[in-house]
Computed example of a mutant assay.
Amino acid sequence: ITHLARTLADARGAQHALARQLITVQEDERRVLARELHDEMGQTLTALNVTATHLARHANMLTRDAVAECATDLRREIRTCGEQLRAMLKTLRPHGLHAAGLAQTLRELVLGWRARHTDIDFELDLPMQLPDVGELLSLTVYRVVQEAVTNVVRHSGASLCVVRLAVRTGGLVLEVRDDGRGLPEEGATWHG
């Protein structure tokens, strides 16, 4: 009975630690989203407002060419706003994961990083056929790759990052490797 009580207490402690960790992750995501909304969308919306205000104040004095130029500016800013919104939504929930599948969604993720960081060579190694692993596991694999690649970009100083997903008996094996500097000695262990 004592052993069972200890096991139960350990399990409850682990459950509480996981709950705290989940809250921390959610708050981190909210903080990043709030910063992106403020920094990126805020600037774009301000530019839209400035152009619209200019049009409203000077409508009767503007030439056709000036109005056309303002309209072009508005369209460009609206397009930028849409691109920023799509990028943020993709961060929150990868579009097409359920429809296109895990392989295609991982390809799009890696292509996105290739487009943003030309100083890191990103490689993606996927099997010809992935089994249907369900939405929850697909989302989990996607999030792990997303976080790992983000850490490579932010912290590793790498010139190469390889994302490899393989099918093994009983499931999938995911590997994200880079040629960066790695963890410092004091940070080499994880306590979860």
Rank of each mutant, 00 (worst) to 15 (best):
T2V: 15
H3G: 05
T7H: 15
L8R: 12
L8C: 13
D10M: 11
A14Y: 04
A17V: 01
Q21C: 04
Q21H: 14
I23Q: 15
T24H: 09
E27S: 12
E29D: 12
R30A: 10
R31T: 11
V32G: 00
V32R: 11
V32P: 01
R35C: 00
L37D: 03
H38A: 11
G42C: 10
Q43Y: 03
T44R: 13
T46I: 05
A47N: 05
A47I: 00
L48Q: 06
V50P: 01
A56I: 04
A56N: 10
A59M: 06
A59D: 01
N60A: 15
M61V: 09
D65M: 02
A66S: 14
A68K: 12
A68G: 05
E69C: 06
L74H: 07
R75K: 05
R76T: 08
I78R: 03
T80N: 10
C81I: 00
G82D: 10
G82F: 13
M88K: 04
M88A: 11
P94G: 06
H95C: 04
A99N: 08
L109W: 04
L109R: 12
L111Y: 02
G112V: 05
R114W: 06
R116V: 00
R116P: 02
T118Y: 05
D119H: 13
I120G: 01
D121S: 14
F122G: 07
D125N: 10
D125T: 05
P127N: 07
Q129H: 14
L130P: 08
D132S: 13
D132F: 07
D132Y: 05
V133Q: 04
E135P: 12
E135N: 07
L136E: 13
L139M: 15
T140N: 12
Y142R: 07
V145K: 08
E147D: 09
T150K: 15
V152P: 01
V152C: 14
R154E: 13
R154T: 06
R154H: 08
S156H: 06
S156M: 03
A158I: 03
S159A: 05
C161R: 00
C161M: 07
L165T: 01
T169Y: 08
T169K: 14
V173L: 14
L174S: 01
L174Y: 09
G180Y: 03
R181Y: 13
G182P: 11
P184S: 09
E186R: 07
T189Y: 15
W190T: 08
H191P: 00
G192V: 02
